[in-house]
Amino acid sequence: MVEYYQPTSLQEALKIRSENKVTPYAGGTDLMIEADENLCYLFLNKVCEMRGIYEDAEYIRIGAACTYEKILQSELVPQILKDAVSQIAAPAIRNLGTMGGNIGNGSAKADSALVCFALDAKLQLSSVSGSRLVDIDKFYLGRKKLDMAENELITEILIPKADFGRYSYFKVGARNALAISRVSFAGVLSLKDGRISNIACAFGAVADTVLRFKDLEKMFLGKTLAEASAIKQDFVSAYSQSIVPIRGRVSMEYRKAVCMNLLNEFLSQSDI
């Protein structure tokens, strides 16, 4: 029989990861599309430390092998993430699929990764020699290129505990269930004393990684909604210049047009 690993503790999982050439398998729903029978899997679905959802003073901590269904049931998880997760695939996939797997697969179409970009989430990466935290946007280096060493595992997704204020999540696919995003958008906007204190606009399934332009977001920071509305056209045209989609299952032109529509919809919903 070919070797396989199904550890029940994180310590055991990290040791196996460091000593063997293995492919980490959380929910399997991305990996099994290709189903390469020559791979040696490190099954993470029984590792207790990676299956729960906890909170500490700063973060909601979602175990990398926690299923979408558990995320939907959790009272700790912010609604924007639940909105995204509830539109992923269908129940039978949500019973298996995980955020850790979705992110580790490296696709810019990963719906849960998109929300992580909008919420400034961090990833905890662990190995036998220790753990480190990485900002989600620094984790994605390019198409299917991740800042992750051969001996590391994504162990947790950390969502800052903050009031994200207004949010919009849009997924454009070919059908309601079981759809791969053609374009997706996650936006948040919060106000403090009547002024915009945080804004994030993230675009998924458009380029090699999720797109977010922090420099452009700064145009609105510190402004009232009325002041932001006054420069809305400049804001939108700056995005129009910055978003350069790649061709995929759908054309560049289509993706670009949908991105701009979704951005405009988010701004309208935010009273800008």
Partner: peptide, 8 residues
Amino acid sequence: SCMVAMGS
């Protein structure tokens, strides 16, 4: 069941 590897 197509999305499940036996080891899991």
